[in-house]
């Protein structure tokens, strides 16, 4: 009996610790964001929070994800075009081999010239998994998050993201609705 009770106490304590660390319950278009989950930054710079007056694009990827790699030239082109206006973050997810990720970045340095690069450390145990991927219902990559004024402006597939979207984001005119309208227009 004592043992069972103890287990219960431990689980409650664990749940409390976990809940204390939880940054976000729900991440969707229009939801507020302030802190960046704990990750390992693989280049000289990184962030711990989103600045109010800054604009961010977070791109989720993994070395095993072929569509992610396919989207990289397009994303790095956008990063170059909006250098100084938008902070690009290439956020590696769902893999635990740091050496492999570092090697990939070395081998494909051109893709990461104008972006910060982060590594989350693996599925389920990573802070980024718990505090970003799960609250945003993310189950597939690549996936891109656009952030302005501490709010998620739009969550998208990187292949439909254009410089028109980013220009509107810079001008503060981008919402999920206006963004989807551009995608629709480009389809025709």
């Amino acid at each position: 009996m004592k043992k069972i009770l103890l287990t219960g106490v431990v689980i409650i304590a664990l749940a409390q610790i976990l809940s204390a660390q939880k940054l976000y319950s729900f991440l969707d278009n229009g939801e507020p964001v302030n802190k960046y989950p704990a990750v390992t930054w693989l280049k000289e710079s990184g962030i711990t929070k989103f600045e109010q007056d800054k604009i961010y694009v977070i791109e989720l990827w993994a070395t095993w994800c072929k569509p992610c790699i396919k989207s990289m030239p397009h994303m790095s082109e956008l990063a170059t075009k909006f250098k100084g206006k938008i902070t690009f973050i290439s956020q590696g997810v769902w893999e635990s081999d740091t050496a492999k990720v570092r090697q990939f970045i070395t081998d494909h340095a051109a893709f990461f010239t104008n972006s910060m690069v982060a590594f989350d450390g693996g599925k389920d145990k990573a802070d980024f998994d718990r505090n970003w991927l799960k609250p945003s219902g993310t189950i597939g990559i690549p996936r891109t998050f656009l952030i302005r004024n501490n709010k998620i402006a739009w969550i998208t597939d990187p292949f439909v993201l254009t410089d028109e979207h980013l220009q509107m984001l810079v001008e503060g005119k981008l919402t999920a609705e206006t963004a989807k309208a551009i995608v629709q227009k480009n389809k025709q």
Binding site: F26, D28, L133, K134, P135, G137, T138, I139
Partner: peptide, 15 residues
């Protein structure tokens, strides 16, 4: 599995 799309949907409906 995956559970997340369902928990995300519940949170979205709730809000």
């Amino acid at each position: 599995i995956p559970f997340e799309p369902f928990s995300f949907a519940i949170n979205k409906i709730s809000r």
